[in-house]
Design a binder for these strands. Sequence first.
DNA 1: GAACACATGTAAGAAGTTACATGATTAT
DNA 2: ATAATCATGTAACTTCTTACATGTGTTC
Lengths: 179, 179
Amino acid sequence: MDIRTLCLGILALGDATGYEIRKMVREGSLALVAEASFGSIYPALAQLAKEGLITCRSEPQEGRPDKKIYAITEAGREALRRVLQQPPEPDRVRSDFLAALLFAEAVAPERIPALLFLRREQLGSQIAALEPLLDDEALTCTQRFVLRYGLNQLKAARAFLEEEGRRLEEELRVSSAAE
Amino acid sequence: MDIRTLCLGILALGDATGYEIRKMVREGSLALVAEASFGSIYPALAQLAKEGLITCRSEPQEGRPDKKIYAITEAGREALRRVLQQPPEPDRVRSDFLAALLFAEAVAPERIPALLFLRREQLGSQIAALEPLLDDEALTCTQRFVLRYGLNQLKAARAFLEEEGRRLEEELRVSSAAE
DNA sequence: GAACACATGTAAGAAGTTACATGATTAT
DNA sequence: ATAATCATGTAACTTCTTACATGTGTTC
């Protein structure tokens, strides 16, 4: 899903400014799912507006640039529906942690316990950051579902590391002692 | 982790050609972790060789281009170690499926059951493709760990969809009937 | 008074993908 | 015969990020 479609989809959930879209992508349930920077969001919004898939109204502000509030049009909804008819691509996971584990075994096995520890920490704080979002009463049931899905995945990873991480460390100790 | 480092790491696991690296990234435990196309692998290998982090020996072949077998050097190992000293970045998940779910609620809620179904199918075949790899006796314990980690995540997702997917569909039926 | 939140936008550059170029061998 | 596998490489293109440009208001 490219940034254009992402912006279009977010605007289907409600009117927003570019700034707000960025915030949603960084903090909300959308953060689990996608990424986007200002440098890609603003041009995407301009393009969508030019094509009539969204509209823009300016709200004057003092001491800062006018707020540009974008709203999806019926043509935009239709375009989004067409995209959603396609089966979504498989999720892509890009895990530097797992890659580092694999490579560390070859060149720096002593680094592995630290990698496991760091990841457990990281997962813990991600979970802690996400969990309170569930308390928001305003969530739709699908938003709640997505959040819970994300939490489920993070917790599954943490549980795996708790249970199996020590076992891995043990195996490595044994095999390095055998040399 | 950029493609350069990825190639360097793979060569730390053993000598390989560009073609083989591509295969590992598509099929092995590495497929869970990273992606790379020929268009990025070949230039990366050429660059690494120029910098002395890997070496290249050519093996003549008939009827096809010479096989270029790359091997990591001690300088390469050292460079890789330096990279591994840095804490790895948090995993990035890019899930068009979850995004589609969120957006579908707004513009095409009738599409949600199909999305859930498709994802369950997709997870099933990913799991089925990965599971037999565990039988490979040649896996190092870390490679096995990574594979099992990946399987654990896929199964956690599938279990979540089995249990909670139906509940979501039910909730949506109720709320659409209420209109 | 330093840092962060608000607010938009552009331009240069990084990083990678896709498609092209070439062609034998092997399996279906 | 048609497609897939083996094998390398380049060039054009897409896509996105980072950094710059600008400035006020608010919080620590």
